[in-house]
Design a protein around this nucleic acid. Structure first.
Lengths: 336, 336
DNA sequence: CTGAAAGCGCTTACAG
DNA sequence: CTGAAAGCGCTTACAG
């Protein structure tokens, strides 16, 4: 009772009248322990408020019961991005049914990976889920070197192969956005891409471009944003001024699309009347913009669930798993 | 080189030609170690790719270099709440300058606290920052019992005293919202509160009520939301139908205020012409609603920074710290 | 400044 | 089903 958390397995064993080995077995689930001893240990644990010391356990089992969620993003604003938030929720969903916890590994402002590497290699986590990976963050090498079970949410940049990941088919999504806009009669279709050091941004841009070309249209009106609303606003203001002929914009995230919407309103463009807007993500903001956003699905939660399962399954047997690639769906609302 | 992460201090010591004790001292910063040995160890560490095993270290030091961020919220949607996101960013900001990492402890869907308690008491973390605390989540008892250095973001429900926390003065904020609305000429002022099992919601409501009463107005038009946009939309639709005379609404979060705005637009009410709306948080959505939101500041990041510092300072010396209470500021934009 | 030794609290073959 | 024993990889008085 006194000093809860301080009781040790030794104490439990003594109180229950068994050896430490038996107490240990009983504590963990009672395999190979007589019913009587199991009960005695249970009572001792309750009486003493015993909680196993994880460090001691980890030292011998080599497991830590923690999964790292790596966020190689120097800017903590990432946290308010709904896609990212959904991702954390997805990991949490899966781990809920296990004894594992999430440790959040955030790239330091300084930009170095030393701490991250040290943590991953210090036998600190059992596996890792990587979110929001950029081309130059060296995370693919780092993960490969660590040898830890890992999965990326979003196709990693890497020549190393073998890195497991889940993704939405972003190229198809970009295509679908452009094709849909073409089908509604748009002819001067611009795009605001995400940051081109991220595969999702690259793929969406590529798909958009292919479809624009296939339609015999001009793919040259293309600006690079960073997935945030702020970036899209700045770009949209310029874009609409420089290219008044533009009759549709594919913004590569809902946040950016909603930035476009507000700028369009501010400069007196009617959406979808004389400007069509398509976003990407189908996140929580999509139904709430004005007009509601036509967009492509990018289910962060579902992707993170799949990635986490991949890591868990690697923990069991080291088998290779083909990437999980979800097809985006076009959700038609009011903006296009 | 081979089996990176597998090298042990023993290996380092042997390669450097010193004892394990000296190697240990050198690895940690070189106090009480000759320059020559320090260098020898440094080289051995580099050669072997040695990374200390944290479990072994924790077992003896009793420190884990992790801080728990406890989210006693069954619903993972919390992650997309910008205030909450800001909070995580704030903790990360502070820990960035320390060797500590964040472990995210989320209340299980099942609702039980067993896992949480087990984790906190299993010598797993050095301290805890609690975010989004509800009256019945038993977190105050649980934290107090664990004896861990802790701080709440938001005033805790507790009779135990001594629990350290940071907060914005929500009551004053509620007051300021109501007083401002009164000053703009509003006379039928409703409120949509947050969930009343949270102190922030309670305090804002209380402050609003006091000011309404002080102004000789009627405080009876009051609905309970849950801080989300969805809840506010459902409520606003009913509220505006049942009380068409309402000329102002204080919504206790920006998310809720933005829900009110969209409903108002849908039913043809002009904001701020014939309906004024004030929110709370001054989060990222506030400048981007239509019209931009008049709101009160609630700096989640700053609060979390203060809370984390509290925990860190408790880690040093067990001294008591008075709560940090920030004054909200009224930010006037277009909605009121 | 340095090293031998004890010990942190557990788990896990191993022998019974 | 049970217990004695070894060992996981580190840190920290202690004596020098």
């Amino acid at each position: 009772m006194a000093g809860s958390g301080r009781a040790t397995l030794e104490d439990v064993a003594r109180l229950a009248g068994v050896s430490r080995a038996t107490a240990s077995r009983a504590v963990r689930g009672g395999e190979l322990v007589s019913a009587a001893n199991r009960e005695a240990v249970r009572r001792a644990v309750a009486d003493l408020g015993y909680v196993p010391n994880q460090a001691a356990r980890s030292l011998v089992t080599r497991r830590t019961d923690t999964i790292a969620v790596v966020v190689p993003e120097p800017d903590a604003r990432i946290f308010s991005d709904p896609f990212f938030a959904a991702t954390i929720a997805g990991v949490a969903d899966v781990l809920e049914d296990t004894p594992k916890q999430i440790v959040l590994l955030i790239r330091s402002r300084g930009g170095g990976n030393e701490r991250l590497l040290g943590y991953l290699e210090g036998d600190h986590v059992d596996g890792v889920v990587v979110v929001s990976h950029h081309r130059e963050d060296h995370l693919t090498d780092l993960i490969a070197r660590s040898g830890l079970p890992a999965a990326f949410v979003g196709r990693p940049f890497s020549s190393l192969g073998e890195l497991q990941y889940v993704d939405v088919d972003n190229r198809m999504g970009g295509r679908m956005a452009a094709e849909y806009l073409v089908s509604t009669g748009a002819r001067a279709i611009a795009t605001i891409s995400g940051p081109l050091d991220m595969s999702a941004a690259l793929d969406r841009l590529e798909g958009w471009r292919e479809a624009i070309l296939d339609a015999g249209l001009d793919p040259s009106i293309q600006y690079e944003g960073d997935f945030t609303m702020g970036s899209a606003r700045r770009i949209a203001a310029r874009l609409l001024a420089e290219h008044p002929e533009v009759d549709a914009i594919f913004a590569a995230s809902d946040l950016m699309a909603s930035g476009v919407l507000s700028v369009a309103r501010a400069v007196g463009r009617d959406v979808p009347g004389d400007l069509r807007v398509v976003g990407f993500d189908d996140g929580p903001v999509a139904p709430d913009t004005d007009p509601p956003l036509t967009t492509l699905t990018n289910p962060g939660r579902e992707l993170a669930v799949a990635a986490t399962r991949m890591v868990l399954s690697q923990l069991d047997r080291q088998e290779y798993r083909a990437p999980v690639i979800l097809r985006p769906r076009l959700v038609i609302r009011g903006s296009a």
